[in-house]
Design a protein around this nucleic acid. Structure first.
Lengths: 151, 151
DNA sequence: ACCATAATGTTGCGTCTGCAACTAGTGCGC
DNA sequence: GCGCACTAGTTGCAGACGCAACATTATGGT
């Protein structure tokens, strides 16, 4: 096997490990958040992103990017959360195509309740992944990715 | 912010980066494989896993694990591929609950055609992810995860 | 030998997703 | 000012998913 083939194999291997870890965490979070707080992972992700925006608005498009969703999925997700009173659509004056979204007080409350669950389950899931030899190196690498703000 | 809080933040940050990279690659692969070869990423993953099994059988359950799917999704996936003649169900004699699956010649042919696309798109997607400052460290870490067989 | 328990796949059901087509609004060139 | 290309968000549609309930087969205790 030549060097080029090795590179292909390494990439494929990394991708499989990435997908495995992702799916492990995703599933664990989904079950916990859904059963204990009635929100899905994407819903939590969106609410968290909104909350982390210095309490400011977010356009639908940004929101879709933050949660890695298509436009249509973002529309429907926001509609769901709006119907449940966790989120509000705010028309913005300067660009009448644009629609801002913001958390309602109820949304902030729910997020505050769900966050400990999220953090705990994430920790457990990572520990579990680290128990699998195939995945341990990736999990370890993940831990060394310090956000810039903390360095 | 205390040390414990830092740890929580680091995990959350790592998880967001992981999800972002995963979704980027997933989407790129999905579009390419779907449009050029008519298979989804999960379908490719399953066929690839089957092919890498030394040309041998695989049980539904293993297959579900390999692709990170639920049992029901695995059943339907195998049914889809079987209907298209890419895969065959094989009852196994020693455990009459179990069902083996194996690639048909047509399946192996399609896989051989799709693999170059998969590898090329994976490479491009990784390069693109590396262009995003937020994601670059994770991609770099991914590259250092050499499979044991190659070391 | 027999029954309770566990494991393997399959099916009904409700939900979520992406794509493509569409509407509404912006702004640039002229 | 007028059109034309572009962006933002919404909706119809068909496909895939997970969960829970089910049928079938294996296994372990007595």
């Amino acid at each position: 096997m030549g060097i080029a083939d090795d590179a292909v194999e390494i990439r494929a291997h990394g991708w499989r490990a990435l997908a495995a870890v992702y799916s492990l965490i995703e599933t664990a979070l989904e079950r916990a958040l859904q059963s204990r707080h009635g929100v899905s992972v994407v819903e939590y992700t969106v609410m968290d992103a909104l909350d982390r925006q210095d309490g400011w608005h977010m356009r639908m498009r940004q929101l879709a990017r933050a949660a890695a969703l298509s436009n249509s999925a973002a529309t429907r997700l926001v509609t769901r959360l709006e119907d449940r009173g966790l989120l509000a659509r705010v028309l913005c004056a300067d660009d009448r195509r644009g629609i801002y979204t913001e958390l309602t007080p109820a949304g902030r409350t729910l997020l505050a309740e769900a966050r400990p669950t999220h953090d705990a389950v994430l920790r457990e899931a990572l520990e579990e992944a680290e128990g699998t030899p195939e995945l341990a190196p990736l999990v370890a690498a993940l831990r060394d990715l310090a956000p810039q703000s903390l360095t």
